[in-house]
Design a protein around this nucleic acid. Structure first.
Length: 474
RNA sequence: CGGGCUGUGGCGCAGUUUGGCUAGCGCACCUGCUUUGGGAGCAGGGGGUCGUGGGUUCAAAUCCCACCAGCCCGACCA
């Protein structure tokens, strides 16, 4: 009945939250998931916030087909090699065996680039920046709801540029201004950003950049990636433009974030009371609990609700008085609603409501306070802001306190039992990386050892003085 | 691919060893009454081809055979 505690069994806690907060459940085909309305409303908020940032980079949305001719994937050897074990291939259609099998997209580089090749002729067609929101399929052996599912939702951006430098700069811009800003600004999930090692990079890319977040169990979750593709796809698909100097192959990027971020949200902020959503993201920011089925209380609840809505707050009124207050409080807490206003006959008489902050649920004395109905709107807005700040602060503390500088592989293996390890890449190298991998620890990304700011990313894994961020990963 | 385990109402399980009367229990669900300030109580109620097919038997959830599905461990892959 009760939620499994995080300390007792973290994976079980995660499954419990997903189920009890009514976020999602498994589909009939292994590895698929049904995203329930409440879970989907959170995803829609994520989509909206990411989409507006993507558009701000001058990128336009479009849509490409789910089915891709198998031969398209065969054009880029590394790309095919990377994805072939997890492809779903359709061999029958319309009751007949297909002469040319079609692949259900695992990603859309190939099909999108086959069209970019048609659309790009002149330097005036560049840069071309496309994005699509879509589902993709990668057949997974060990599915975990939201974190690794056979079918998942994402956005994938695909761009073409005239120069290598411009493509690189754009890949960095997406990582910093879209993904990092969204994750730290809206999700309140602090991330490490850096470049992927040769072993970890995207199949077909020349360089992969990533945002890596630390979950509450100390494991890493890749929250987003941005790739410089070089000219590997443009050469395969013959994407060329003309300028005064003649014909040139374009330089490309691709980048994505997925429904996996739902898992990141849950495991970064969740606690033993359930989900805990930052106010800015929350599809429901305030729930007004009508304690007792009483006309005066109902009337007052509606009045407060309307005032909050006018102030731009996303609010619902819970009038299901056939359930106990305790039950309803727990249910809304599991769903992570940032602020709860409890309103009963006593409160109406005293012109007040009880304001309860979700982020303080582990400390019930602090969590509750009466607020006058005269300034309930401003007090609620303040509480929403304070709750969000508290969530962000706690996540940052968790990340900082569990990131350990280490000097050897042995120390790294020890440190990554509970958190992240940071080790000079020159000391580790590809051979050390292989040793770590055998022990379940991977290089999440490489960073400059003393960047002026964290957004200053290495251009190559060969740069001197890089540090490796090490962790066990989902 | 190898080894182990499990299939019983929406979910979680008992019952199988030793065949036997109408297949039970918890949660959830429905109805009524009393309740409602941190997971309400009482009473009543609905819901099951016991994974599928075959066999043994007077009688099978239970024993036998085959098949199917799922889970765990290993291998493989990242």
């Amino acid at each position: 009945m009760a939620l499994t505690s995080q300390s007792k069994d973290f994976p079980k806690w995660y499954q419990d939250v997903v189920a009890k907060a009514e976020l999602a459940e498994g589909g009939p085909v292994r590895g698929t998931m049904v995203i329930r309305p409440y879970g989907y409303s959170i995803w829609e908020r994520m989509q909206a916030e990411v989409d507006v940032r993507i558009k701000a980079t001058g990128t336009q949305n479009a849509y490409f087909p789910l089915f891709i001719p198998e031969e398209y994937l065969q054009k880029e050897a590394t790309h095919l090699e990377g994805f072939s074990p997890e492809l779903a291939v359709v061999t029958y259609g319309g009751g007949k065996e297909l002469s040319e099998p079609v692949v259900v997209r695992p990603t859309s580089e190939t099909i999108i680039n086959s069209f970019i090749a048609k659309w790009v002729k002149s330097h005036r067609d560049l840069p071309l920046k496309l994005n699509q929101w879509a589902n993709v399929v990668r057949w997974e052996m060990r599915p975990r709801i939201f974190l690794r599912t056979t079918e998942f939702l994402w956005q994938e951006g695909h761009t073409a540029h005239a120069t290598e430098e411009e493509a690189w700069d754009f890949a960095v811009q997406i990582l910093n201004e879209v993904y990092r800003d969204f994750m730290e600004g809206v999700l309140k999930v602090p991330v490490f950003t850096g470049i992927k090692t040769e072993a970890e990079k995207f199949p077909g890319a020349t360089h992969s950049l990533a945002c890596e977040a630390m979950m509450k169990d100390g494991k890493a979750l890749q929250m987003g990636t941005s790739h410089a593709l070089g000219q590997s796809f443009s050469k395969m698909f013959n994407i060329k433009y003309l300028d005064k100097d003649g014909e040139h192959f374009v330089w490309q990027t691709s980048w994505g974030v997925s429904s996996r971020m739902m898992g990141g949200l849950i495991m970064t902020h969740g606690d033993d009371s359930g989900l805990n959503i930052p106010s800015g993201l929350a599809p429901i920011q305030v729930v007004i609990i009508v304690v007792k089925d009483d006309p005066e209380v109902l009337e007052m609840a509606d009045k407060i609700s309307n005032e909050l809505i006018e102030a731009g707050v996303r609010v619902v009124v819970d009038t299901s008085t056939q359930e106990s207050v305790g039950r309803r409080s727990v249910d809304w807490e599991i769903k992570g609603i940032p602020v709860r206003l409890e309103l009963g006959p006593r409160d109406v008489k005293e012109n007040q409501a009880i304001l309860v902050r979700r982020d303080l649920a582990q400390n019930k004395d602090l969590a509750k306070a009466p607020v006058s109905l005269d300034d309930v709107v401003s007090k609620t807005s303040d509480a929403l802001l304070e709750a969000e700040e508290q969530i962000a602060k706690a996540a940052l503390t968790q990340k900082n306190e569990n990131t350990f500088p280490v000097k050897s592989i042995d120390e790294a293996l020890e440190a990554t039992k509970t958190g992240f390890a940071v080790m000079p890449w020159d000391d580790l190298g590809a051979s050390g990386e292989a040793v770590l991998l055998e022990n379940g620890v991977s290089v999440r990304c490489l960073q400059k050892s003393s960047p002026e700011n964290e957004r200053d990313l290495p251009k190559s894994t060969d740069e001197p003085n890089l540090v490796a961020i090490l962790a066990r990963a989902y």
